[in-house]
Each structure stands twice: as structure tokens, then as C-alpha cells.
Write a protein that binds this DNA or RNA. Structure first.
Length: 1127
RNA sequence: GCUCAAGUGGCGGAAUUGGUAGACGCGCUGGAUUCAAAAUCCAGUUCUUUCGGGAGUGUGGGUUCGAUUCCCACCUUGAGUACCA
């Protein structure tokens, strides 16, 4: 009976499904073990052989742990919200849920075929309402929480309200918006309900704010930082621009330090930890305040000159094209909204104003913007800023922006502006963050980001023009441009000066785009002698470079090394090394109240809104412009049906197309938009959650995935605790893996989960790349000219394509293949043809020889790299008549190159085809055998024959009867057989502990080869052997196990126990080396003494031969290991 | 630029508390079986050689009786990051 993988694998897969062999129990006497894979996004293309690599590894581990007596949780599910299904919906109109459902079915079929031991009863799908009910629930928990820095954890918002009630917000130490005005308990009590909500919103862990976001116009959505690669969208490579929008954000920054600290307690790959550390970007330093000196000439920054009625009339006539376009639309606005153009309000002329809606529409970038904004704010107007470009680009969007502004007046902005007004009246201060406050005496200028709010206020009249031009130029430059030329130094002097806080000297204030508005305070104190960028800037603009380092030459470059140098020319810091100087200066700054020690993080709060359809809807409605959470007992808020999946015409997200998307607070259900009255029925949030929402907590849901009452029961959470082993790709380092850690810490703070890190150990599996096949096309152009009978000269241009086999190609020297034979042939054909035309003078000219590699589908290539020419010809019309120049033996060899596995490169190999031809066990073994799990390695189908023949040999060991019948002897095993078995047990135990699966496979091969040589068919050996192999090749293992007479699945059979006694040897084959080079070996007893070994070796004739009469200088004997003779 | 990882036969890779480099497999070569092919089995396969041997783990140094393994410098490749003050 021969090995029939198809029958065996089908039978056992059915058996496992029927008996629920891998269903994990939530209570067991066994110790628990949780093995998790990163769940897949079910794409339309299905799986290729690269995808299951990690799943196979985790499955082997899970099965191994079951053999070792653990209660194993090994679940699987789908991260099924996402862009591709939505893009497909936009193109075809097919509902993303349907596409997703179909793709999941394909995935499931493919996964089942590989024989994974998943507990499918716990499957989750992020897009199913039963699941996202709890994603919404977590969102509400975040909304109802604030971060208390004193207790260093998230707390319920009610504790914050209690504090406000009792003592106002002065003593509150929270992670919150930076600009919150302080208030007393009495003031708090007097605030309106709305005002209270506004204030609380600034403290919540998920909050609404106007943030600069990465807007991708092509995708019509906002992207997170980690979704942008090289300045373009990760998906599709579309341009990304900065844009201000009202968005939900997650206050992940509150957890910066804890996310950093937590890394020390988890066993994750160092490169991954490094990249998270890098992403969080902690830097220790100090905040320092610099006072801006008043400008010498104060007249030019004063109020606006008043304009006469005549002037205004002229203004109205001379409006720009964009302005008149907008006015044309605004004047027609229906209902209560009535706009006026160029209307005087106080000292200012508004662009457009609506009195009854208290809304002003202004073109951005007015010179007196701050003064205006202050005035408008104090008068209670909300301002919508627009630009000419926006109008010209899409006037409908501008209109919807204005509508939005009317509907939801921007509270935050009014507040900020109001505060700015207060600030403006006081002395202007530039705050900077620096990691080197110890170099403060080396400050010779300051640089502000062009976007810095003070720029417009401090610039002198003389510099105004240059500064405005520079600010505008920078704003226009895309992120990509700015990134592309890092080398160019640019900047402009503002004309203003700051006062050095210690020396009192005047320090020039510049603006420059090397300072980023989004990091620190958007301003730096420049120390050219200690920072290369400041140095370059100073050199470029000829600014002083004072040296404050003892005995360091700074004539060529800045001195950035902080250790081993002492500070000089720095008053009280003179002679101090870095660490002491840091301490001293921070002490001085704090004493003078002009600064303080501070730790800064690069990690930004995460934008949580997406303008998409296929994502979790927010459980949020808007009342009086303020977001309100829907009571958790009414969850889930199901995704509404829409007719179109694109954004609406007025620029709202796709959910704006839904007709039933309003919340009835009396009936507590979603109702038709018609019913919105803003009394009891309100508009629901139109954004959806980002892709990372559902994946940030799914590992907890698996513990109790069918629970409809709770996120997961306390018992389940307490039992499973956390993931013991998590396997997935390294591409999620700063996305999923950071967000998931953040949510876990939050849930831990709230007492919902028992641990604050969700995965103890994580392994990044490498990528399996494809091996593309190439046929080389030789393109030949030749022109023929001849004189026809009538005397006319005729030119013919002909073209021929040939494919050349790589072997033939390589045999030829030089860079081009010698095509003499072909030319002759072509010539003959032509001449033959032309003769018929009775031409006399024929000239043939060969023009071009182009050699181009063409991808050939890897399925046309056999194990010896030979192309199936017929299949290749039929594949593409243009190759149908091409000629093939083959090897001498008539075969056609393709060229090979390793590339990423992708459809467009025709190198994708599907696991289905492999399972069909070689079987799932072969696939599993081969993927492991390819190389170390964490390494990326190329797939080459030809290699799989090795593991298949291993399985056949294994099968034969158990079928040594006549005609290959199953035959096992109950005889006692001999020493050699036991040695082979126990050697293998030891190796496999070690390998699995080190996740070195590739070497276990080779030790199985060695074991089977040895046992075959020993003609071993003994139960004592073969029962143990098959349990060893079962995690790797479970189907054949089950089959042989049942043939051995077992009624139960092999899944929980006890793993054989290693006994060292079987490996004890009595002698050792010593390598005898001379000067470290091994020359021969010598079999000696292991209990021989050092001296005896030395004597025996030196007496050996081969030693004498090697020494050729010389006396050995030294003899090194390491018993049991080696003998080395130094001559 | 910075950070990290890795460089070993024709190919995937094995060997590190420093101790026989190339396990295991692919491919290739020869042979057996076969009318033939597939499958299977046997032998060989780092390079070089005057068949005694010699050289050899990216390059150049160093430590050591002994280095793929440890140290220093450099080169190459891959990944991440990008003016982070």
C-alpha cells in the first residue's frame, strides 16, 4: 500500500472537524498556552504559499504544546474591514460585505486544506456586528476616561468632574490639550452644560479636535503616519497633503512612557522593539523661554488704517476671480443664511459675513490675521478659513466647509484665539525644547518653523515681504519635496530679536524650514557650535558661531559629541562635563523660572476618523454641536446601507449617503434622516473607525468570542490572561503592535483585562519571496531596400522576435548572441519573397538587436528550469509565432531571479496546487525546511520533492510487509535504534524551544534514513517517532497512529521523553589537528586520560609523518573534544 | 545620513559557552532497474592539485594552541527611519 496523501489528508481533516479535536476549553487542569497568528485581511487574490508560513510555525508550536500536556488556545479569524473591498464596491457596486464573505470562504477553504489545528468555534470577524459591538464599546470606554498623571493611569471621567466640582482644574495633572484655560470650582459650577462638555472633551482619551491630518485626495480619506510610505500612501502610492480637519483622535501620547517601559518586559524581537522605541522617540532635555525684544519701530504693527466708503466700493469691484465665484454661490444661499460681502466689522473688513449665523468666511493668510481672529472671537463669530486655490479647485467642497462651519462652530478655535489675545498683550515669549540646555551659552540665533504662530507678530516691516514670501513658498512645497532636498539650506531673518536669558544679549530670530512645526514647540534655540544643522545654517547666512567647548576645533564642523568634552565660555557652567552641566543648567532655569527639565516624545496622538464606508461606525451622535455617546446597551450601531460608497457631492464621508442615519434618543434606535429635529432625533457621526480599531483587541475576544453579554467574561480573561506566543509580520511594528499595546494598557487601567501587555513573546516570520522565470526576447529590426521593376525605390522595415534559452545565451561570449544563422534564414526568406517582385538591387540592413527579459508564468517551468514552450506560446497572443532558440538537447531553459511574490511578476505559487500535487504535509514540511523562520527566503517549487520522498520513506518504515503492507514488530529495540530515536527527541525539543523548525525537519530525515538502514520496524521506536513528527506532518501522523492501533487522535498523545542513557558512548573519534588544521582522526576510548591520549597520538605514525622529524612545541588535549599539536 | 540585521558550494541552508566547515535537501554527474519514461535504489558532487597534498566561511588586520563563531576597520546587501532640536 503506497502513501496516498490525498485520501489521508481529506479523511483526517474531516475527522478533526467532526470531532472538534482542537476546541479549547476555558477551564482545564492542564496549564494554559495561547498561540496566536496575526489574523489575515481576506483579500480577493486568496492565499499564496508565502502567507501560511507563520501559521504553519504557530501550528507546529500549538500541536507540540498539546503533546506536552498544555491546554492550548489556537484561534483564527479575519481582519475583515478594509480598503480593497470598498474600492471594489466603488467600482462595481457590490456590497463590501458580500465581497468579504466570498473572500473569507476562499480563505477558509485554503486554510482548511493545510491542516491547521485552529479552534474555529472561536472565529472572529472585525466586520461582523457581534464583534464591532465591542469595538464601539471600547471606544465609549475611552471617551469616558481621562489620563491622570498623578496615578499614572486612565481613570473614569467622573473622577475628573468631581475634582472640577471641588477645586477647579488648577491642580489637575492630566494629559490633555495644551491650551486649557484654568478655572475655579465656582466657575465650573456656573459653566453651561455645553461649556462643561467642551472642557471635558479636551481631557478625554478619545477626543475631537481640528488636527492637521494627512489627507489623501485620491483615496478620499485621512491616513495615519504609518500608512504613509515615502510621502505617498502605502496603498496605491497616491499623493498625500496636509490638511486641517475635525477628527477623532486617540490620546496614545498619554501612554508614551509606559509603552516604552513595557518593551523591557516582553520577549519581542530586538529590531521591532528598536523601531517602536524610535517611533515613540523619547528625548530628555529642557524647555527654555526666550523673551522677544520689542521692535524698534512700533508704528507698523499697529491697527489697520480705516478705509473710506469709496475705498470699499473699489474693493468690491476689484475682487479676485475666486472671490467672485464664491460670492456668486453664497449670495444665492437659501433659508436663514444670508451672507454679505466685504462688510465692515469693527476695524476690519470681512470677506463674507453672515450676521444671523454669526459666521465669517475669510481668505486665509491676512497679514493682520491674529488681530482679526481675536476681534471676531470676542464678538462671538466663528470663522471659516478658505483659500483661493480651494475655491478654484472645488467650489462645492468649500461650500460644504462653510456649511459645516455654520452647523458646528469651531469652539476650539475660538478658545485658542481668545487665549492668544491674552498672550499677545503680555510680552511675547518663544518657548523652545532642547536636549542640550547645557550649551545655552552657545546660542547665537533662534529659528522658528515657518508655520509658527509668532512669525506674523514679530516680523518687522522691513522683513515683512521676504518673510511672507518664504512662508508661502514653504506652505506650497509638499512634504515630499521637503524630504527630497534635505541638503538645501533656506531661511529668512524676521528682523526681530530675542533676549538671551543668561547673558541678556540680542539674539536674531530667523525662520527656516529645517525646523518642524509638529515637533517640540516648533522653535529651536540654535547652537551652531554643537549642532550640525545650526552650524550649516549659521555658515550659510554668516551668523556668529561662538565656541563653548573646551579645546575643540569647530572651524570645519559642529561638535556633536557630548561625552568627554567640557563646557567653556559659559559663565557658571565653565569646566563642567555634560552630565553635570545638564543638572546645573536645569536647576538654574527652574530657579529663574524661565525653563524646566522636560521629556519630549515624538509619538503623536493617533487620528481615529476615516472618511470611509467599510469600517466600524462610531456610536456617536451630535447634539448642539457636541458629540454624545449612545448608551452601551443599544450597541451595536450597525453600518447603514448606502447606494454609493463614494463621498457625497458636498464632500461628506460615504455615510453621508445613508438615508437612515439619525439617532432617536427616545426610541433609542437608528431612524431616517428626515426625522432629525435636534430635539430628540440627532445626526449620527459620518466618519468610520480606522483599520487598526478592530485589530487592537481581537486577541482578548478569542478568549470568549461568543459572549454576547460582555467583551469577554472575567473568568475567561483571568484564565487565558495573555498571548504566550504571537507570530506575524514585522510590517506591523509601528502600527497594529503599538496601537494594540496602547489599548491593552488602557483596558488594564480600567480593570477590564488582567495584564497590561497582551503578548509575552512575539516572532516575526520572514517573507517568502518568489523565484521569477524569464525568457529572453531578442528583437530584431531590419530594413530592406530594393528597386522595383518600375524603377521606384522601395523600403521595407521588418521585425522579428525570437526567444533565446538562458543556457544558449550564456554559452555565447560577449554581450549579444550571435544570430548569424538567423540572419541568413531571414535573408533567404526575404530574397525568396522579393524575387517574385522581380527586383534587382536588394540591400538588407540590420538595425537593432534588443534583448529583453520577459516574465514567464512559473507554472510553465518544470523542476529543471525548462519552459513548456507550447504553454508559453498559447499564453500570450504576441508570442504565438515567436521562434525559440533552444539548448542543444532541444529544451528551453529560463533565467531565474528572486523577487517579491506578486501577480504581476507571474511568480505566485498557490498552496492549493501544492496540496493537490504534493500534499499538505509536504507543504508544511517544506515551508519549514526552507530556512530559519525569521529570515526571508525564496520559494522554489522544485525543492519540495525532497520532503515528499522523505514522507514516502517514512511511510515505508511502517509498511515493511509483503507488497508494502502495514507491518510492525513488538520486538525490543536495540541500542542503535534507541540511539537514533533519542538523539532525535533531544534535537526536536531543542529546536522547537529555539523556533528552529528547519533543523528539526532535517533531523527527521536523518532519523528516517538511519532507521531505514537499520531495517527498523519496531513499535517501541516507531510509535515515538510518529509523535515527534506529528506537529509538522499531522495527517500522515494520524494515519500511522491509527494503524498502530490507537482509537484516539494523536493530537494529545504524550511527547516521547528523552533519556540521556541511550546516547552514552564509550569512545570518541578524535580529530587530530596540527596548528589548528585537522589532518586525521583517531578512535580513542573516552575514559582515556589526558596523558595517555597525548602519548598515543604522538606515537601514531601519521603524527610523525606530519611533523617530519620536528619536535612538537606544545600539545593541547581537550578530552572528549580535540587534540591539537603545535609544531 | 542614522539605527538594526545579514554576507558560508551551482541553489536553500547547517555548525557559535571558540574545538573535524559545508549536516539535511535541491540541482548536477555516473550507474542499476526499464523497450522507454516516470518512480525507486546505489555512488559522487567547495575549489585546486604534479593525487603526496594545498587553499577555503565578504575584505584587511588582531586576540588565541585553535576563529564561520570574539575584537577593530572597511566593503556589499536587505529592512526600518528620515531635518526630532
Amino acid at each position: 500500500m503506497s502513501y496516498d496523501h490525498k485520501r489521508i489528508e481529506k479523511d483526517w481533516q474531516q475527522y478533526w472537524a467532526k470531532n472538534q479535536t482542537f476546541k479549547a476549553s476555558n477551564n482545564s487542569d492542564k496549564p494554559k498556552y495561547y498561540v496566536l497568528d496575526m489574523f489575515p485581511y481576506p483579500s480577493g487574490a486568496g492565499l499564496h504559499v508565502g502567507h501560511p508560513l507563520g501559521y504553519i510555525a504557530s501550528d507546529i508550536y500549538a500541536r507540540y504544546k498539546r503533546h506536552k500536556g498544555f491546554n492550548v488556545l489556537h484561534p483564527q479569524g479575519y481582519d475583515s474591514f478594509g480598503l480593497p473591498a470598498e474600492q471594489y464596491a466603488i467600482q462595481t457596486g457590490q456590497h463590501p460585505a458580500k465581497t468579504t464573505e466570498e473572500n473569507i470562504a476562499t480563505y477558509r477553504r485554503q486554510l482548511d486544506r493545510i491542516g491547521f489545528s485552529f479552534d474555529w468555534s472561536r472565529e472572529v470577524r472585525t466586520s461582523s456586528p457581534e464583534y464591532y459591538k465591542w469595538t464601539q464599546w471600547i471606544f465609549i470606554q475611552l471617551f469616558n476616561s481621562w489620563y491622570n498623571k498623578d496615578s499614572d493611569k486612565a481613570e473614569d471621567i467622573s473622577t475628573l468632574e468631581a475634582i472640577f466640582e471641588a477645586e477647579g482644574n488648577k491642580k489637575v495633572n492630566a494629559v490633555c490639550d495644551e491650551e486649557i484655560a484654568s478655572f475655579t470650582a465656582a466657575a465650573w459650577k456656573k459653566f453651561s452644560k455645553k461649556k462643561k462638555q467642551e472642557i471635558l472633551l479636551q481631557y478625554r482619551l478619545t477626543f475631537l479636535s481640528d488636527t492637521e491630518v494627512n489627507w489623501c485626495p485620491a483615496l478620499g480619506t485621512v491616513l495615519a503616519n504609518d500608512e504613509i510610505v515615502n510621502g505617498v500612501s502605502e496603498r496605491g502610492g497616491h499623493a498625500v497633503v496636509r490638511k486641517k480637519m475635525t477628527q477623532w483622535s486617540m490620546r496614545i501620547s498619554a501612554y508614551s512612557q509606559r509603552l516604552l517601559d513595557g518593551l523591557q518586559h516582553i520577549d519581542w524581537p530586538q529590531p521591532l522593539k528598536d523601531s517602536q522605541t524610535n517611533w515613540i522617540g523619547r528625548s530628555q532635555g529642557a524647555m527654555v523661554s526666550f523673551k522677544v525684544l520689542p521692535n524698534d519701530s512700533t508704528d507698523e504693527k499697529g491697527a489697520l488704517s480705516f478705509k473710506t466708503i469709496e475705498e470699499i466700493k473699489t474693493l468690491r469691484l476689484n475682487t479676485s476671480k475666486a472671490s467672485s465665484m464664491l460670492w456668486d454661490v453664497l449670495r444665492k444661499k437659501k433659508g436663514s443664511v444670508k451672507f454679505r460681502q466685504q462688510y465692515i466689522l469693527g476695524d476690519f473688513i470681512t470677506d463674507f459675513v453672515s450676521f444671523n449665523k454669526k459666521t465669517i468666511v475669510e481668505f486665509s493668510g491676512k497679514e493682520d490675521e491674529i488681530a482679526r481672529a481675536n476681534f471676531y472671537a470676542t464678538e462671538g463669530y466663528s470663522v471659516v478659513y478658505i483659500t483661493e486655490e480651494e475655491i478654484l479647485e472645488n467650489i462645492d467642497k468649500v461650500l460644504s466647509k462653510i456649511n459645516n462651519g455654520i452647523q458646528f462652530p469651531k469652539i476650539a478655535e475660538i478658545k485658542k484665539v481668545a487665549k492668544k489675545k491674552v498672550k499677545k498683550e503680555a510680552a511675547k515669549i518663544i518657548d523652545v525644547f532642547t536636549t542640550r540646555p547645557d550649551t545655552i551659552f552657545g546660542v547665537s540665533f533662534m529659528t522658528l518653523a515657518p508655520e509658527h504662530e509668532l512669525v506674523s507678530q514679530i516680523t518687522t516691516a522691513k522683513q515683512q515681504k521676504a518673510v511672507t514670501a518664504y512662508v508661502e513658498a514653504t506652505a506650497k512645497r509638499s512634504e515630499r519635496d521637503r524630504m527630497a532636498d534635505v541638503k538645501t539650506i533656506s531661511g529668512v531673518f524676521t528682523g526681530a530679536y530675542a533676549e538671551h536669558p543668561f547673558t541678556g544679549e540680542k539674539v536674531q530670530i530667523w525662520i527656516g524650514d529645517y525646523v518642524l512645526a509638529s515637533y517640540g514647540t516648533g522653535a529651536v534655540m540654535a547652537v551652531p557650535c554643537g549642532d550640525q544643522r545650526d552650524y550649516d545654517f549659521a555658515k550659510h547666512f554668516d551668523i556668529d558661531i561662538p565656541n563653548i567647548f573646551e579645546g575643540v576645533d569647530i572651524s570645519e564642523a559642529a561638535h556633536e559629541d557630548k561625552n568627554g568634552t567640557k563646557i567653556a565660555n559659559s559663565d557658571f557652567l565653565n569646566g563642567l562635563p555634560y552630565k553635570k552641566a545638564m543638572k546645573t543648567i536645569i536647576y538654574e532655569l527652574e530657579k529663574k523660572k524661565i525653563g524646566y527639565g522636560k521629556i519630549n516624545y515624538r509619538l503623536r496622538d493617533a487620528v481615529f476618523s476615516r472618511q470611509r464606508y467599510w469600517g466600524e461606525p462610531f456610536p456617536v451622535f451630535y447634539k448642539d454641536g457636541m458629540p454624545q455617546m449612545i448608551d452601551t446597551k443599544h450597541l451595536p450601531i450597525a453600518l447603514p446601507e448606502v447606494e454609493k460608497y463614494l463621498p457625497t457631492e458636498d464632500g461628506k464621508p460615504p455615510l453621508g449617503n445613508a438615508t437612515d442615519w439619525a439617532w432617536d434618543t427616545k426610541a433609542n434606535k437608528v431612524v431616517s434622516n428626515d426625522k432629525i429635529d435636534n430635539k430628540s432625533v440627532f445626526a449620527l457621526e459620518l466618519n468610520t473607525m480606522p483599520g487598526w480599531a478592530g485589530s487592537s483587541w481581537y486577541f482578548n475576544r478569542y478568549m470568549d468570542s461568543q459572549n454576547s453579554e460582555e467583551f469577554a467574561s472575567k473568568e475567561a480573561l483571568d484564565y487565558w490572561q495573555d498571548v504566550d506566543l504571537y507570530i506575524g509580520g514585522s510590517e506591523h511594528a509601528t502600527g497594529h503592535l503599538l496601537y494594540a499595546r496602547f489599548w491593552q494598557k488602557f483596558l488594564f487601567d480600567k480593570g477590564i483585562v488582567p495584564v497590561d501587555e497582551f503578548a509575552k513573546k512575539l516572532i516575526n516570520q520572514g517573507m517568502i519571496t518568489g523565484t521569477s522565470a524569464f525568457a529572453y526576447r531578442y528583437s530584431l529590426d531590419y530594413s530592406v531596400s530594393y528597386k522595383a521593376e518600375d524603377g521606384r525605390k522601395v523600403n521595407l522595415v521588418l521585425k522579428d522576435d525570437f526567444f533565446i534559452s538562458i543556457g544558449t545565451l550564456n554559452k555565447k561570449s560577449g554581450n549579444a548572441y550571435d544570430l548569424d544563422g538567423l540572419f541568413e534564414k531571414a535573408e533567404a526568406i526575404l530574397i525568396e519573397g522579393l524575387k517574385k517582385k522581380n527586383s534587382s538591387e536588394i540591400q538588407i540592413e540590420f538595425h537593432q538587436e534588443i534583448l529583453a527579459p520577459i516574465h514567464a508564468d512559473v507554472s510553465f517551468v518544470n523542476t529543471s528550469d525548462e519552459l513548456d514552450i507550447e504553454a508559453f506560446k498559447n499564453w500570450r497572443e504576441e508570442h504565438k509565432n515567436a521562434e525559440f532558440i533552444t539548448e542543444e538537447n532541444g529544451t528551453f531553459k529560463v533565467g531565474r531571479e528572486v523577487e517579491k511574490m506578486s501577480k504581476s511578476k507571474y511568480n505566485v505559487v498557490s498552496p492549493d496546487a501544492i496540496c493537490e500535487e504534493y500534499g499538505a504535509d509536504s507543504l508544511r514540511l517544506f515551508e519549514m525546511f526552507l530556512g530559519p523562520l525569521e529570515q526571508s527566503k525564496p520559494w522554489k517549487t522544485s525543492g519540495i520533492s525532497g520532503v515528499l520522498s522523505f514522507l514516502k520513506k517514512l511511510w515505508k518504515l511502517y509498511h515493511s510487509g509483503d507488497d508494502g503492507a502495514f507491518f510492525i514488530s513488538d520486538e525490543k529495540a536495540n541500542k542503535d535504534e534507541l540511539k537514533t530515536l533519542h538523539k532525535t527527541i533531544k534535537k526536536v525539543d531543542e529546536d522547537i524551544a529555539n523556533f528552529s523548525f528547519n533543523t528539526s525537519v532535517s533531523s527527521f530525515m536523518i532519523a528516517v534514513n538511519e532507521l531505514t538502514a537499520l531495517k527498523c520496524n519496531k513499535r517501541e521506536i516507531l510509535e515515538g517517532l510518529i509523535v515527534l513528527i506529528s506537529p509538522y506532518a499531522p495527517h500522515i501522523a494520524e494515519e500511522l497512529w491509527s494503524k498502530l492501533g490507537h482509537k484516539d487522535s494523536i493530537a494529545t498523545a504524550e511527547f516521547p521523553v528523552f533519556e540521556a542513557s541511550h546516547l552514552v558512548e564509550s569512545s570518541k573519534n578524535y580529530p587530530i589537528s596540527f596548528n589548528g588544521k585537522m589532518r586525521f582522526t583517531l578512535e580513542l576510548p573516552l575514559d582515556m586520560s589526558k596523558d595517555d591520549i597525548e602519548k598515543t597520538v604522538l606515537a601514531h605514525e601519521k603524527t610523525k609523518e606530519q611533523l617530519q622529524g620536528r619536535e612538537p612545541k606544545k600539545v593541547i588535549v581537550v578530552p572528549g573534544k580535540i587534540v591539537n599539536i603545535v609544531g
